[in-house]
């Protein structure tokens, strides 16, 4: 287990040394969402209606944008091969990398989400649910993204490819994430949607690292 902690600490330290990277992703998230009022008009009612969806879609895109950080650098300098040889099972290693990735991208997105909710005029009833839904949903994005990032290691134009591979798989997260926010805003219980998001997370937690480990093994062999 100490190897797991060390790997998380190492990835966090690396992200800290390149501090601006994590901020760039949040910047993209905020800027992208701010473009919507310019595109659809500043009408408060319209913005309130689409706010939940816009925030979720932007979170999805921002998560895709940051996936190249997950394995690419370690793959290029050979660290990944050494990690694959370590006694720690490759699945645990992937889990550690996903956790570090979530802490450096998912968490900042969750913190920035209420700010966007205010800018986009999301009714106040939806705030808590939005944060809760994103807390359940963004780890799934990191886990699914890890599969895509591992599969496209060494591919041409890997950045675009990852989005093409992963975005269709994230449709359920988007559906239940937005449904939870819409339910809370409309005065319905958001619980069922949040539970389904939780179920997706619990299903992704063992399955995605397993598939990612298989993909990494083929990438480094």
């Amino acid at each position: 287990m100490s190897g797991f902690r060390m790997l998380v600490a190492r990835d966090l330290k690396l992200a800290g040394r390149q501090g601006s990277d994590a901020l760039l992703v949040v910047g993209f998230f905020v800027l992208g969402a701010v473009l919507f009022p310019f595109a659809v008009g500043p009408d408060a009612a319209v913005l309130a209606r689409i706010a939940g969806g816009v925030i979720w879609v932007m979170a999805l895109l921002a998560a895709m944008l940051s996936l190249d950080r997950l394995f690419q650098a370690d793959y290029e300098d050979g660290t990944l091969e050494l990690l694959a040889l370590s006694p720690l099972p490759l699945g645990f290693l992937v889990l550690a990398k996903c956790l570090a990735h979530w802490l450096t991208t998912g968490l900042p997105l969750i913190i920035a989400a209420p700010l966007l909710a205010i800018l986009l005029n999301l009714p106040a009833d939806g705030f808590a649910t939005l944060v809760l839904a994103m807390a359940l949903g963004t780890p799934i994005l990191s886990l699914l993204g890890a599969v895509g990032a591992a599969l496209s290691l060494g591919a041409r134009r890997a950045g675009v490819l990852v989005s093409l591979l992963v975005l269709p798989l994230t449709v359920p997260v988007l559906i239940f994430g937005v449904a939870a926010v819409d339910a809370a805003v409309g005065g319905y219980p958001a619980g069922p949607h949040l539970m389904l998001l939780g179920a997706l997370f619990l299903a992704a937690l063992p399955l995605c690292p397993w598939a990612t480990a298989a993909a990494l093994r083929h990438a480094v062999e």
């Binding site: 599969v147 599969l151 496209s152 060494g154 591919a155 041409r156 134009r157 890997a158 490819l161 093409l164 591979l165 269709p168 798989l169 598939a211 298989a214 993909a215 083929h218 990438a219």
Partner: peptide
Amino acid sequence: GYIALVNAFDDPQRGARAGAILALV
């Protein structure tokens, strides 16, 4: 996505393996 992934590698063997995992996922 599957077709794009299979064709994205210079080594066809690698593309085939990655595509197979993606198909199962």
